[in-house]
């Protein structure tokens, strides 16, 4: 199955990726069929009705004919189907139903800046430490307020996210400076980080592995260097990793432009 033609998409590694992939495949097959049918008819017309000295013009009913609305009806039915049975439900699933309550998702903050991804895990207490913009400096890129008890055990990383496979993760996405976009192609996930907003994103990785996180919204001269890794591990490995990092002071500081 994994060798089936998938329109050149990279391997899928998140729970909702197959839903997006099936939509892309369906639409592209439909596009191909429409284009081939259209193209064949078009070519036929060009050959059949090319100018010949002995053949005149045959006039059809051009003023009252509604013939050219027929393909429209077909396209419309297809689109209405797509909207009702595909786009709206899947969109609600991905963008509006966030894990919470008994699902106990892995929570983390991703704080983008020019040109790095800062990551904050709440640590064993499950509470994010307070952040203050005025505390931001080279050694404290997210401005973590260390006087806050909740901040004592927080794990702060740069350009590196660890997630357990098979569990839902809830990412609180924000940015320090300009708009960035959190994009992981294998997750089929993309979400802008907008200054002044904290935007929730969820993902349930299905395959262990290392994936590339790349900024997908122009954010300045080093935009293409703004990458990070997403390490998806088995839950055991993930827990072991988390233990090895905590308790932690802010570490591996991402200074502005630290990764180039």
């Amino acid at each position: 199955m994994s060798y089936a033609f998938n329109w050149g998409l990279p391997p899928a590694a998140a729970s909702f990726a197959p839903e997006i992939d099936s939509g892309i495949a369906l639409i592209h097959w439909a596009m191909l069929i429409i284009f081939v049918l259209w193209g064949a008819f078009f070519t036929y017309l060009l050959i059949r009705y090319r100018h010949r000295a002995d053949v005149g013009v045959s006039l059809d009913d051009t003023t009252h004919s509604l013939k050219s609305l027929v393909p429209d009806v077909i396209v419309m039915i297809f689109e209405i189907g797509l909207i009702i049975f595909y786009a709206i439900p899947v969109w609600a699933h991905i963008k509006m139903k966030f894990p919470g309550g008994n699902e106990d998702p892995v929570e983390l903050n991703v704080i983008a800046q020019q040109f790095a991804w800062n990551v904050q895990y709440p640590g064993p207490d499950g509470k994010f430490g307070r952040r203050k913009p005025e505390l931001i400096n080279f050694y404290n890129p997210i401005g973590l307020d260390l006087t806050d008890p909740a901040a004592q055990d927080d794990v702060v990383l740069a350009n590196e996210i660890h997630l357990p496979a098979g569990a839902k993760a809830l990412i609180h996405l924000s940015t320090l400076d300009v708009i960035h976009s959190f994009g992981v192609p294998e997750f089929r996930l993309k979400q802008d980080a907008v200054p002044g907003m904290e935007i929730p994103v969820w993902v349930k990785p299905t395959q262990a592995g290392t994936y590339e996180l790349a900024c997908a919204q122009l954010c300045g001269f080093a935009h293409s260097l703004m990458t990070g890794v997403v390490v998806v591990q088995s839950p055991d490995q993930y827990q072991a990793w988390l233990k090895s990092r905590a308790p932690a002071k802010p570490q591996q500081a991402a200074a502005p432009g630290a990764n180039f």
């Binding site: 998409l9 839903e19 997006i20 939509g23 892309i24 639409i27 797509l82 909207i83 595909y86 786009a87 899947v90 969109w91 991905i94 963008k95 976009s181 994009g183 192609p185 089929r188 996930l189 993309k190 997908a216 919204q217």
Partner: peptide
């Protein structure tokens, strides 16, 4: 289409 645009947006 909202859903497929999540992946194709800005590519």
């Amino acid at each position: 289409l909202t859903v497929t645009d999540i992946y194709l947006h800005d590519t």
